[in-house]
């Protein structure tokens, strides 16, 4: 069936297309171009084919080893913060007030960490956790627990995980809170009349209603944490040793520290593809789960 289509609408999309073209597509093409070449400086480039990719994906090479180590660190980090932030965010949302002036007050307090620029968050924690002048580091050491994030990998991990939890749990909590707010009072009243326990209410009313926003929260937090750069860079700089060197940090070292533009380009492409693939898997699993529930 042919029907008249308003062609003028394309004009409205044009600015976005242009911006995306200049900000994303053109740089991406440049990176693809770099990733298949080698250079020794002087703006001289040599064709290298898929050489960088082969090296990158082979763990026995120097480059591949670095890449896979960083990748596992990334995955571990994402897993840890999801395991902490999601339940914690739900708990915070559940304990938030539903009526009165406290609602506004709680929302403001929760939103505060989200408003702080990432490098400032890094700086705050870098100082906060120092064993000599930082309140946290000093206090922990005084309690008899050895803690020094500049020397001990475990301390470093604890610091950056704690920092991320402090920074982003609010986001999960706010999303969950929005989901909880959409539940009419009648549901809680009915559940009370049905004699439902606190857990039964959570399991049968609150969790199903939060389901959608939780999926979004997990997706956002996964992508964000998988691409983390600024905060650990400011706090630990990837150390001690390489213990907190994530893929993004390694990428910067490679590109700006060693000027290995070809390797860095190949790494960033693979990194990008991994994120896209994981997001796609997440998305399809989520939508399929949603479809099944219906």
């Amino acid at each position: 069936m042919d029907k008249p289509v308003n062609q003028g609408a394309w004009l409205l999309v044009l600015p976005v297309l242009l911006i995306v073209a200049f900000s994303a597509i053109l740089p991406l093409m440049t990176v693809v171009n770099y990733s298949v070449q080698d250079t020794f400086g002087n703006n001289q480039f040599f064709w290298n084919g898929i050489g960088w990719y082969q090296e990158l994906l082979d763990p026995s090479t120097d480059l591949g080893g670095r890449f896979f180590d960083a990748l596992w660190r990334n995955l571990l980090f994402s897993l840890l913060i999801l395991l902490i932030e999601v339940p914690l965010g739900i708990a915070v949302a559940l304990s938030m007030p539903r009526h009165g002036w406290r609602v506004a007050a709680t929302l403001v307090v929760l939103a505060l960490p989200l408003l702080i620029p990432w490098n400032v968050v890094g700086t705050i924690w870098q100082i906060f956790a120092r064993e000599d002048i930082g309140l946290l580091g000093w206090a922990v050491n005084r309690l008899g627990i050895p803690y020094n994030y500049t020397a001990d990998p475990l301390s470093a991990w604890v610091t950056i995980v704690a920092m991320d939890v402090w920074h982003w749990t609010s986001l999960v909590a706010l999303l969950c809170y929005a989901g909880l707010r959409s539940i009419p009072d009648a549901f809680y009243q009915a559940a009370r009349i049905d004699g439902a326990s606190r857990w039964a209410i959570f399991r049968n009313i609150q969790l199903p209603k939060m389901h959608r926003v939780l999926l979004i929260a997990v997706l956002l937090r996964f992508m964000d944490s998988f691409m983390i750069y600024t905060e650990p860079f400011v706090v630990t700089g990837g150390g001690p040793g390489n213990s907190t060197t994530f893929v993004s940090i390694d990428l910067v070292k490679l590109a700006l520290g060693q000027f290995d533009l070809g390797k860095a380009a190949a790494l960033s492409i693979v990194y990008n593809l991994i994120i896209l693939a994981v997001c796609w898997v997440f998305y399809t699993v989520m939508t399929r789960m949603d479809a099944q529930r219906n």
Binding site: A186, A190, I193, N204, P208
Partner: peptide, 13 residues
């Protein structure tokens, strides 16, 4: 007592 509300309350899942 039991109560039936204006909008049906059914546990979706």
């Amino acid at each position: 007592i039991a109560q039936v509300f204006q909008f049906p309350v059914v546990y979706d899942t």
